[in-house]
Simulated scan of single mutants.
Amino acid sequence: MKLFGAIYDKTMAWSQHKFAAAWLSFVSFIEAIFFPIPPDVMLIPMSMSKPHMATRYAIYTTIASVLGGIIGYFIGLYAFDWVKGIIVDWGMQANFDKAMNWFETWGVAIVFLAGFSPIPYKVFTICAGVMQMAFLPFVATAAISRFARFILVAKLSAWGGEKYADKIRRSIELIGWGTVVIAVIAYAIYTFVK
């Protein structure tokens, strides 16, 4: 069944839209608060289709993500009772408890790790507020780690450019279905071990 090729083509078309940078910023902002899809999904094709704009896209993504992280921080600081119900309803209590334990152990270093890695950033922005982490170190660490991640993603995507876009397009079904299989296996293992 061919599914991922059409999605890939649509994503590449959106990456060249005149409002693509605004959408990238919006997705980056809301991802740091609640949205489940990381901005890389837009940053990669945008940087591939316009390599000369990759650094600018990484900067837009970073600024929007840090601003969203600040909102997440204040949600954790002032509205955690409201958020706690959502965490329980969405079945994320165990993940949230684990993140809180990491905060107690690692402090500001965990913000750097969460900002640079594919770990859901929104969990850590809210946890930082709940833990009443010092605000300026939180913002500085978030800015450094998010920029490091997004500039790396953007520059690697720009370096590959259109030549890799064509190669990825030819293999997209294998990549897409392979990712689904790996995710299902990982989930099954996690559920079994748990």
Rank of each mutant, 00 (worst) to 15 (best):
Y8R: 11
D9A: 14
D9N: 15
D9K: 15
T11P: 03
T11W: 13
M12K: 11
A13I: 02
A13D: 07
W14I: 11
W14G: 05
Q16G: 15
Q16V: 09
K18Y: 15
K18S: 13
F19C: 10
A22W: 06
W23T: 07
L24S: 10
F26G: 12
F26A: 15
F26D: 04
A32F: 03
A32P: 07
A32L: 00
I33E: 04
F34K: 09
F35K: 11
F35T: 09
P36E: 02
I37P: 01
I37H: 01
P39W: 10
P39H: 09
D40G: 09
L43T: 11
P45A: 12
P45E: 07
M46H: 03
M46T: 05
S47R: 02
S47H: 04
M48R: 10
M48H: 04
H52E: 13
M53N: 14
M53Y: 08
A54V: 13
Y57S: 02
Y57W: 08
A58Y: 07
A58C: 06
A58Q: 02
Y60T: 07
T61S: 15
T61W: 01
T61N: 11
I63R: 10
A64Y: 06
A64G: 10
S65E: 06
S65D: 04
V66C: 09
G68P: 06
I71P: 05
I71Q: 00
G72L: 04
Y73R: 02
Y73I: 06
G76C: 06
G76F: 10
A79N: 08
A79S: 10
A79L: 11
F80Y: 15
D81H: 12
D81G: 09
D81I: 05
D81M: 08
K84Y: 12
G85F: 01
I86G: 00
I86E: 05
I87T: 11
I87P: 08
D89P: 00
D89Q: 08
W90L: 12
M92L: 13
Q93H: 02
A94Y: 07
N95V: 02
F96P: 01
D97A: 08
M100I: 15
M100E: 14
W102H: 04
F103A: 02
F103M: 02
T105D: 13
T105P: 05
W106P: 00
V108H: 11
V108N: 11
I110H: 03
V111Q: 01
P120Y: 04
P120V: 10
Y121D: 01
Y121G: 01
Y121M: 05
K122Y: 01
V123P: 09
